[in-house]
């Protein structure tokens, strides 16, 4: 089953405050992703991997082409979509796992991880058991659950973020170096989580700098090249 269709997507950043410098990052990129496969974006630093992943989440806006998300509820082109459609996709279809946790003041780890489920209207009992399971699996000590992650270490914050973005069984998961700065044991846990997501039929698009992990997870590589200045 098709989940993502990217056609002729281009992106150029224009830095108005630095003399209108134009930074082309993607030029006419096309590919598809099916349910149950893990596609890895691959290429040298600066080739636009991260920008492309952000476009798949609606975080960056493509200049041209189309990015069609085939959700269970229907098809949406992210390039032309209304913000509400994007928010709706993020609620039920698109998950994004990144390196950085945007810390929200005062919100506890538990509530942060539970939030995506409660936004979907999941029953409280089920939320509680799933949150606990996820936090234990990612080796986050129980003493941290009621605390806000602002004071946590980088690795702990990242695991909170992974817990938060993988707690929902999204049909599409976008992974931006999810294991950077994790120790070996936790890297294995995350790799296992990703594999499980693929096995349940999620379409995965990822960026992995870790060669071993890339080899272990990737079904396919999409080669991106730095766009030459024009």
């Amino acid at each position: 089953m098709r989940r993502i269709t990217v056609e002729q997507v281009s992106k150029t950043f224009v830095l108005h405050n630095q003399g209108g410098v134009r930074l082309p990052v993607l030029d006419q990129v096309s590919f598809q992703v099916d349910a149950g496969e893990c596609v890895v974006l691959y290429g040298p630093s600066g080739c636009g991997k991260s920008s492309l992943l952000k476009m798949l989440f609606g975080n960056y806006l493509a200049d041209g082409g189309s990015i069609r998300i085939h959700a269970d509820q229907g098809e949406t082109d992210l390039v032309a979509a209304h913000p509400h459609q994007v928010l709706e996709l993020r609620r039920h279809t698109l998950g994004f796992v990144s390196q950085f946790l945007r810390v929200i003041p005062r919100v506890s780890t538990w509530d942060l991880v539970a939030e995506p489920l409660s936004r979907q209207g999941v029953e409280a009992d089920e939320i509680n058991s799933r949150v606990e399971q996820m936090l234990r699996r990612l080796n986050l000590p129980e003493s941290l659950w009621s605390l806000a992650p602002a004071t946590f270490s980088g690795g702990e914050q990242q695991r909170v973020n992974i817990a938060r973005s993988m707690i929902v069984d999204y049909p599409i998961l976008l992974l931006d170096e999810p294991t950077a700065s994790l120790d070996a044991a936790n890297r294995d846990v995350v790799a296992a989580l990703i594999q499980e997501a693929r096995d349940r039929g999620a379409a995965l698009v990822g960026i992995f700098h870790d060669d071993a992990l890339r080899t272990r997870l990737a079904d396919r590589l999409i080669h991106l090249e730095a766009v030459s200045e024009f």
């Binding site: 609606g58 975080n59 960056y60 806006l61 913000p83 994007v86």
Partner: peptide, 12 residues
Amino acid sequence: GLTDQVLDDPHA
């Protein structure tokens, strides 16, 4: 636009 889109990929 979406808050994170406007703040992370501002055009104007």
